[in-house]
Design a protein around this nucleic acid. Structure first.
Length: 431
RNA sequence: GGAGGAGUGGCCGAGUGGUCGAAGGCAGCGGUUUUGAAAACCGCCGUACCGCAAGGUACCGGGGGUUCGAAUCCCUUCUCCUCCGCCA
């Protein structure tokens, strides 16, 4: 969420920044200046009346009860009190109108985020490793996995419908080995391992920015037919519980930067992605991910962003998987982020680079929504901190990359050295 | 699921209709004293919003209500604790 005061004071600048994302986004700003003025006036009016009432009440307390003067004043104050209630109601209406608008406005892109309208405009900033060469036609993982008996899409469909997979044998163990490997590496990089709840309240999703705008992307639960008040959401990413860990807190600056890593399954409805990535593990309703989240001071967030991205890259480097890093342009940038690097791994079966990690700086956007602050050592006052997160990595897509980049002519898959201690074998072959 | 009890500032804890944004203690910060340290003493010590400022307003788990006036009374909801039941 953007700061109302900042938006009103810098309306042209904000409008210009939002237009870089999309010309339409800026239009939601139109009503805000007028509403902010109304809000001020109403608050002043409420407070003037309240001060009047409070003073009068102090005098009332000195008066003998049931004296004529007491009764007379009570009648007058009853009217004042009703006026205050009316004005407060008006104030609440204006404020909820404002926050409704503000909650729907995306973050301002950072100056270093390139302008562009789609993923075509995302510049590649670096590449690591090289495309593996094959003396045969490399297969896609949806052929490799089932052939090895380690991924079963058909039985998954029987259980849960499309966009699910069953991992079996070394497939299941590969998934678990990768997860453990990633968590161990994260710990090496100084992250505190966390195992959070996988179901969260709407307030948590509001804090990170998935709600109120993107409810259609989520799975929502209900405890029973009768209890409709119990609506928890399945987390779409561990970013949600991890970032909201410190919602409504004031941290000490000595605690920063904070770094958390968590493995969780992630659940996404993938509404609106019909016909996209319908085959294979790339786009599932449920997938495993190790997520890295950092909290830091505003001054530190650009360098923390680079650091976080390097941590995610090191997972791929240790596995020996070829990838490239791109900067998302304004047209492709997520709602809450001001800058994002996507790490794209090479998938020889698909002959394409595919996102395996997304590392974002959110500035104070999420911190304002979730009210996460730290005490500024200079001013001693609470101040919004900055949040960042990145996948380290999407485990399902890492399985895909391992299967495709390390596939052999005989249909087996070589296990990367770094993973052998975790998996216990050096090759995945059909039995 | 049933029966009770409790939620007050960073922490502990007083407060049961007005003078309470809230006693007292601890922690923290600044100072006096001291060769230094400790102790003692003095002062400061929540957050947000409105306002150029002076100042004002709101907040005692959340929401709603009663009242001229609510931390205090009523309703509702959440969380925690104890006992019983059930359960991986």
């Amino acid at each position: 969420m953007l700061d109302l005061r900042y938006v009103v004071d810098h309306i042209d600048e904000v409008r210009a920044a939002l237009s870089r994302r999309n010309p339409q986004t800026a239009a939601s700003l139109d009503a805000i200046t007028e509403l902010a003025a109304q809000r001020r006036e109403t608050i002043s009016a409420v407070e003037r009346k309240a001060a009047e009432r409070n003073n009068a009440n102090k005098e009332m307390s000195k008066l003998p009860k049931q004296s004529p003067e007491f009764i007379e004043r009570r009648e007058k104050l009853r009217i004042v009190s009703d006026e205050i209630k009316g004005l407060e109601k008006r104030k609440d209406e204006i404020e909820s109108e404002i926050s409704e608008i503000l909650l729907g406005i995306p973050n301002l892109p950072d100056a270093s985020t390139p302008t562009g309208s789609s993923e075509q405009d995302n510049p590649v900033i670096r590449t690591w490793g090289e495309k593996p060469l094959f003396d045969f036609e490399p297969k896609a993982h949806w052929d490799i996995g089932p052939a090895l008996g380690i991924i079963d899409f058909e039985r998954a469909a029987k259980l849960s419908g499309p966009r699910f997979a069953v991992m079996m044998g070394l497939g299941a163990r590969l998934e678990r080995a990768l997860t453990t490997f990633m968590l161990d590496l994260a710990r090496e990089h100084g992250y505190l391992e966390v195992l959070p709840p996988f179901l969260v309240k709407d307030t948590a999703l509001r804090g990170t920015g998935q709600l109120p705008k993107f409810e259609q992307d989520l799975f929502k639960t209900r405890k029973s037919e009768v209890d409709e008040s119990y609506d928890l959401f399945l987390i779409p990413t561990a970013e949600v519980p991890l970032t909201n860990l410190h919602a409504n807190e004031i941290l000490e600056s000595s605690q920063l930067p904070l770094a958390y890593a968590a493995y969780t399954p992630c659940f996404r409805s993938e509404a609106g992605s019909y016909g996209k990535d319908v085959r294979g593990l790339i786009r599932q309703h449920q997938f495993d991910k190790v997520e890295l989240v950092r909290f830091c001071t505003p001054e530190d967030s650009p360098s923390q962003h680079e650091l976080l991205t390097s941590h995610a890259e090191q997972v791929l480097q240790r596995l020996g998987l070829h990838y490239r890093v791109i900067t998302l342009c304004t047209g492709d940038l997520g709602f809450s982020a001001n800058k994002t690097y996507d790490i794209e791994v090479w998938l020889p079966g698909l002959q394409a680079y595919r996102e395996i990690s997304s590392c974002s700086n959110f500035g104070d956007f999420q911190a304002r929504r979730a009210s996460i602050r730290y005490r500024d050592p200079q001013t001693k006052k609470p101040k919004l901190l900055h949040t960042l997160n990145g996948s380290g990595l999407a485990v399902g897509r890492t399985v895909v990359a391992v299967l495709e980049q390390f596939q052999c002519k005989d249909g087996s898959v070589r296990v990367p050295d770094a993973l052998r201690p975790y998996l216990g074998v050096d090759r995945i072959a059909s039995r």
